[in-house]
Design a protein around this nucleic acid. Sequence first.
DNA 1: CTAGATGCAAACGTTTTGCAAATCT
DNA 2: AGATTTGCAAAACGTTTGCATCTAG
Lengths: 127, 127
Amino acid sequence: MIITRNTVQREIILQTVLNMDNHPSADDVYERLRNDNPSISRATVYRNLELLAKQGKILHIRMPNGADCFDFNTSEHYHLRCDICRRVFDIDLPKIPKINIEQKKYKDFTIEGYSISFHGICPECKK
Amino acid sequence: MIITRNTVQREIILQTVLNMDNHPSADDVYERLRNDNPSISRATVYRNLELLAKQGKILHIRMPNGADCFDFNTSEHYHLRCDICRRVFDIDLPKIPKINIEQKKYKDFTIEGYSISFHGICPECKK
DNA sequence: CTAGATGCAAACGTTTTGCAAATCT
DNA sequence: AGATTTGCAAAACGTTTGCATCTAG
């Protein structure tokens, strides 16, 4: 359990993510906040997004090739980044069997987690 | 098919990767070259590693949370980055079923590829 | 009171880019 | 000759950090 205070900034950041249904990067969240809360700093946004993800309140999606992004939908699902417009989309591939990392161990490694991400072309960019 | 010339730099960069059995980042490759080939620039290393990967001669491993790395072993396998020392290791998890991206299509997306990467603690860093 | 959180700006690590000069075919 | 590639330095990009100040509990 992580000991945290309740700060207004943290709550605003959380609510902002919960209200964004695309997959905002930390910077997207920051830009979104800026209008109504010009005093919240970028560093605070980065710090709190990471903390909120650690608390399980949001999902931290680690993307190779571009900014990580965050998601109010904390259930396990996958993402695709469009190689053209760089946007991130949900992609439900029911055929992906859950990866079995037996007791989170492999030889003498301790596996803390893994990430899967797809890239390709989104429908709009195909046109 | 990509039209390319044969440059000495490109060949040196390829040979360097083929002779590194850890998973060098672009910068690792650059540093390795520097001794014998001080005139090859960092930009050339980055450009050629990407090109060689496109040609299928080496593997470009895209890692979230840190530098991408490259691998002379072009067969499909997975990687784990140690959260402590940041090194990248091969990790053969035979339990991973091959992801089935049916005809590389999902709705109106074209899926060009995907990446899976693990993170955790390596044996040495556990001590 | 005090550990935790903030805002700011600067630093960081990785990668890309603009451009003139060089080089391969 | 002409398109590609190089080297250089600077910029871009996403993120983290040091530090003084502030604030929740």
